[in-house]
Nucleic acid binder design. Structure first.
Lengths: 216, 216, 216, 216
DNA sequence: CATGAATGAGTCTTCATTCAT
DNA sequence: CATGAATGAAGACTCATTCAT
């Protein structure tokens, strides 16, 4: 059921034959240090030490410190939209989820699992978004835009069926995302575990109440 | 109606007699630079230049660069809970808001206005929370805890009246906060304006649907 | 009689009020180290130590290591042509030197003195010319061109008087320069003193023989 | 007529059986890069890439980067004096050049051709002389000394014949060298071609005028 | 009391050199 | 024997902080 996991994603990158064992250790060390202390508060010397590697080795593959950041975030960002979008498409095309609740459960649970498993990258990404206005812009318009389009199709389906309130897809998407985030943020910030099944059950319960079409 | 505004808060700090005109300029410059580029990517030289002050002067009042950060965030943090808590108390003690919807409207709108007006501090605060696990912990347990206690009283009031679903206060608070955040985050990240009345109307509409006790 | 001396030139730069005492020490130390070991083989740390100054101070005035090089070479280069050109103009306009020999003596001696006194800069400049093709090009076309024009006037004067062989000014200039260089190069490379009066007397003796118009 | 050419010299080194094909490529690449960018501004990685060889291979034959420099300059330096000296000896012993002009023409033309064909090594050599005072010293005393001795014999021959001014051999040698250099330097610095026959004709014309014994 | 020159530890990055494969 | 990954010492440069003026 879980399509993308942090291990899946990050280990995919690490499994690439193009990266030597040491380069992988560099990425792992950087992932931990960046997410814990932030990009700017992590020195390449620290990375080298944590990775048990020389500083020179750090620069063999990743030409600059920012190159390490990119190597960590790129596979993460690249997979966020496509895999999320895939779910909405699936919901529609195969009519696997006749009930809105089933659909929301699937989406919410899946995204929560993805986020928890990519907790560290997500935190690093959040740091970057706060620093880089361009990234924030891209996130909203390019990534968000694409997602809303795909999501819109699925939502319209449930709206037509009278299961979903007739608000704009963007607004509905925002509520879904922010409700899910409400569960994720504390556990990402504090590095705490999350009972995903329980959390997604709760989240869906609230979302269904808040988003279902009021029957008269 | 608006109790706390960025100007109110920040200018309160700046109006303190203990701060000279130059120190105020330092704080203003730091606020802008920290929120735009991040704490680590802002040098004290930049601050001095933007504040049209010498580097020495920067260090006269604020012993360290972190001291400037503290001077910016302290009044912000200090006022978040008390002023928010005050509203919940008010709601109860004076029974000014007999309807949950009225109460939510008041709280949501007020907090949105507060956030928008303290946009820059909020962004800096978010950056720090991502860097500093202690801060995140404090935020959740001390600040959040105090708030939930106060909020719990108000919520219990509406629950008893059968207007509010019988979920744990913490859960309800979380949904309120995350729904409001859904509106705030894009505008804080992208430095965009927010139509607070419209946004709070929408947010309340969703929250009421999602949180009202299902009548039978 | 001596118009430009290394002290004149370099100390002019050093006397500029815009440079603090420490900055001057940086320039002096750099001049010595660059000329002795070459630009690339001189570290900013060495410069700082020799100048008895911190590395940070080195960068206060001269934003980069290349900035120090520029600060050393600019006043040198800037004065080479104008002051040399001035002599040729003087020769003509004031008819101070009716005899070619007098003129040559003046020019040769003056340029030798200039070179000896700017020995260190000259050596650094030579190193740069060997590294930087653009600099070599500029030297030949812009600087050399301007000089030949000015020189051409003076030479033509002596040619008309039948004192100077009827070769192209550029060719004559080349012989003068290369003959003078023959005396300068060993003493610049080996940091040896040069008996300028004796050397210029010899050089002029040879040049006069080689350049005088063959009678009848 | 041309005894030593760049190809002759450098290819002699390259033809040595002790050097593998790859080592030759390393030397060729180094020659080009050192002369273009300078020794210090050329990395062994660049050399390896240009030579299409691994960095390890570079170090197989030439233990250090300086070893490559030595391998380039040694054959060059080693042949400068002997082959030049040979000409002076030839001039004398075989009385092939009864006229000073013939002798000068031969010497000047030959040395110009040698220099042009060894342009790159000459430039690298010049860079090193500017960096290394010992090299400059050796050049003057060992190499120069040996040359002046050999040359002295030839010059004395022409002086006795009344064709050559009665100056010290060193002084005459200096004029010959500097006059030739006057033609070589621009073309070495700017990597331009030189019309050697024309240039040597001109140079000799000037030298003869400047060095011939004034007949009474 | 304000200034900004001075400091020097620390940063990112390069590169000659080595050595396991 | 060739390779190129790995090393780590240096290098240029930055910046928070101090202090003499």
């Amino acid at each position: 059921m879980i399509i993308n996991s942090v291990n899946t994603l990050f280990d995919q990158a690490l499994t690439k034959t193009s990266l030597s064992e040491k380069q992988k250790k560099v990425l792992k060390a950087s992932l931990l240090l960046f997410s814990k202390n932030g990009f700017d508060r992590t020195s390449t010397k620290e990375i080298a030490e944590k990775a048990q590697v020389s500083e020179g080795t750090v620069y063999k593959q990743f030409k600059t410190k920012e190159g390490i950041l990119a190597a960590i975030l790129k596979p993460f960002v690249k997979s966020v939209i496509p895999s999320a979008a895939a779910e909405f498409i699936t919901a529609l095309s195969q009519a696997n989820y006749p009930l809105l609740e089933e659909f929301l459960t699937q989406v919410v649970q899946n995204r929560m699992e993805f986020a928890i498993e990519n907790k560290l990258q997500l935190k690093i990404f959040a740091q970057e978004v706060l620093h880089d206005k361009n990234l924030a812009y891209t996130l909203k318009h390019e990534i968000g835009g694409e997602l809303v389009v795909k999501m819109g199709l699925a939502l319209k389906y449930y709206q037509k069926q009278g299961q979903l309130v007739a608000w704009a897809p963007q607004r509905i998407a925002q509520y879904i995302i922010s409700t899910v985030m409400g569960y994720l943020v504390p556990c990402i910030l504090l590095d705490q575990p999350l009972d995903v099944p329980e959390a997604s059950k709760e989240a869906v319960e609230f979302l269904i109440k808040g988003l279902k079409k009021n029957s008269e």
